[in-house]
Design a protein around this nucleic acid. Sequence first.
DNA 1: ACAAATTCCGAGTGTTTTAATAAGATATGC
DNA 2: GCATATCTTATTAAAACACTCGGAATTTGT
Lengths: 157, 157
Amino acid sequence: MGKEVRVLKLSTKGRYGVKAMFDLAKHMGEGPISLKSIAERQDISEHYLEQLISGLRKAGLVKSVRGAQGGYLLGKDPDKIRVGDIIRVLEGPIAPTDCVSEEDPESCSKAESCPTRIIWEKVRDSIAEVLDSITLETMLEDAKKREAERSLYMFYI
Amino acid sequence: MGKEVRVLKLSTKGRYGVKAMFDLAKHMGEGPISLKSIAERQDISEHYLEQLISGLRKAGLVKSVRGAQGGYLLGKDPDKIRVGDIIRVLEGPIAPTDCVSEEDPESCSKAESCPTRIIWEKVRDSIAEVLDSITLETMLEDAKKREAERSLYMFYI
DNA sequence: ACAAATTCCGAGTGTTTTAATAAGATATGC
DNA sequence: GCATATCTTATTAAAACACTCGGAATTTGT
């Protein structure tokens, strides 16, 4: 009975990855941030996060510093890192179906006349547009703005 | 090496379901359409499609006629059936993450201050907007239009 | 020099989901 | 009454998911 299906869902890879990257952005300027501290703050298994950040490092989205007092730093300025970039590294190309994958879509003999293909393309593009319009920088601004609103609200109570 | 991950993907349920419903729309006025003929035209396992259409029937999107010469008919006019309706019946509420599910989202203590939640909400809404803006009627019109373009193109060759 | 902290790397594992397949019960037109 | 369909439930093989584990390599502070 517990059918809790999520359609067009993101796996934990993408979700954890974005959380971790935002955490890194929030602590910019404090030197290397250890995975352990990120995992604790974001409530993610450290070992699991290790795997994810490995991919982000290879893609240049984070830099690492090994050894004691080591950790991770953003690989670029936060306004150059889009949420879409993080998702693509961790989950692969955006593709509601194989035939409209962002990279090498599966060829289909009936592609030209397929009445459903157009729909999946629109879905793909609308997802990509949202994810690529948000950067770590805009996330920081947004968080700051909401923080301000919250304290203003508290003031009036 | 064959890591062919699709992020934010649709399962075959949704894809087959939309194809089958479009097939039904195309053959409107021809009486009950058998599952077998739909399965053959759309290249889908008949038994599997059986399971899917069962859900669509219970949701009122199709009507069935049992017995010999029986089959399925659209449950409403094609302009009243949105692709989003079909997807929701077959795959569940649209929800890139559990915390932003269209129906009873998983509660989260940090929901109000979560910087990632807003992103998943935007993704959910943009997907829903695309899927709800397309009906079987618009799909039919679109197919007709492209058919006309194709024959015009053939004429000029 | 050494211990502690940390990143790096590959393999293993239980659970869930996916995409069917199978078998048979029920209903209807001819 | 038989061929043609829809309905219903159960089973299953393979893949994906979300970790878990063990240990090697690297750097800092003492």
